[in-house]
């Protein structure tokens, strides 16, 4: 009530008297009644005081768009010349002395500023409507800054609306793609078998490169993607069970394959660095030579394995540096990679 009285006092000079009905309604905080009265006859020639009461009530009821129209009506009716003068000065970039403009006009700008702000806060998704309302919001923010009216409050409210808009923008997922080059290492199992049925497990340790990329969707916080790369490298193996066969050893055995799968990351910094998980499969082919000793063979199927891996990426504009560390599901082997990539 103190606030509305203050507003009213600003408009007391040559203000027409408000009807006793509206006055009573505002005293008893019956904003709905005031709104209903206004809705019944919006074109009526309301006095300035009545318009203030109606505007206040509309804001209380969160009818911000109607309140905006009403405030514009008040400005056009009572402050048109001052308003035009102010806008022209802003456009020209002139210095503006706030004292040249009536306090009541500044309050109306404040009402418009906050009403547009509340409308923007009400949006849950970004759209052209948000953009349109934001243009007006920015305009009134600029006007209030030029007039140096309630600067601290304007700044604070501005920050809140900017943060909300940023949130709406950030929520949107965008399509993203990149290429990458990883230096990788992975292990594979094989079995050395003898005709007599004895076996010895072999571990092949490979290193090489994986060239590929990823495609996915990303917003300010999450990145969901599918990535894949072509694997090429080589590895070595040695039989450790000397009782079974002596000196079975291979080195630089070529290995190639493909690694692909989905991933999800959380973006953890303003530079878009991120950490996440991947669930790729690796299909690799590597042919070990059969031992020269007769009666022995190597059992080595082309392996398809699934990996759970931890992934991190450090973004430097479009370029990034990445690490990946994964463990084969239900197996002991690991896969790791270290490399670079670029978004395009």
């Amino acid at each position: 009530m103190v606030l509305i009285s203050l507003f009213l006092s600003l408009f007391m000079v040559s203000a027409g008297a408000a009807s006793s009905g509206l006055k009573q309604a505002i005293k008893s905080k019956n904003y709905q009644q005031i709104s209903d009265t206004y809705q019944k006859d919006m074109q009526k020639n309301y006095s300035r005081e009545e318009l203030i009461i109606i505007s206040y009530s509309l804001r209380k009821l969160k009818f911000f768009r109607q309140d905006i129209k009403l405030n514009i009506r008040i400005i056009n009716k009572h402050y048109s010349a001052k308003h035009k003068k102010l806008l022209n000065s802003i456009k020209r970039g002139d210095s503006i002395d706030g004292d040249d403009y009536p306090e009541a006009l500044k309050v109306l700008y404040w009402n418009l500023f906050t009403s547009y702000g509340e409308i923007i806060k009400g949006y849950d998704e970004d759209s052209k409507l948000v953009e349109a309302d934001n243009k007006y919001f920015t305009l009134f923010s600029k006007i209030l800054s030029e007039l140096e009216f309630r600067e601290g409050k304007v700044d604070k409210y501005n920050d809140a609306i900017i943060a909300h808009r940023q949130y709406l923008t950030n929520k949107i997922f965008h399509f993203k793609k990149s290429w990458s080059l990883l230096y990788v290492s992975w292990q594979q199992d094989a079995t050395l078998k003898s005709d007599s049925g004895e076996e010895a497990g072999l571990i092949v340790t490979n290193k090489g490169f994986c060239v590929g990329g990823d495609v996915g969707y990303e917003n300010y916080l999450y990145h969901f993607y599918f990535d894949g790369c072509l694997l090429y490298g080589s590895g070595g193996v040695k039989n450790n069970d000397q009782d079974l066969i002596e000196n079975y050893q291979q080195s630089n055995v070529p290995a190639y394959g493909i690694k692909a799968g989905p991933g999800a990351s959380i973006i953890v910094s303003s530079s878009k660095s991120r950490i996440g998980i991947k669930l790729p499969m690796i299909y690799s082919v590597q042919k070990l030579t059969t031992p020269s000793d007769p009666g022995f063979s190597i059992d080595q199927d082309a392996s398809l394995t699934f990996i759970g891996s931890l992934y991190s990426r450090w973004q430097f504009n479009k370029w990034y540096f990445q690490t990946e560390f994964g463990k084969y599901l239900k197996q002991e082997q690991t896969f790791w990679g270290l490399g670079i990539g670029k978004e395009f």
Binding site: I72, I75, N76, H83, K84, L87, I90, K91, K135, Y136, T138, L139, K142
Partner: peptide, 15 residues
């Protein structure tokens, strides 16, 4: 309406 037009002029410079 005029109000909107004047606003639009400002927008053009603000944008």
């Amino acid at each position: 309406m005029k109000f909107i037009l004047v606003m639009a002029i400002i927008f053009a410079s603000l944008s």
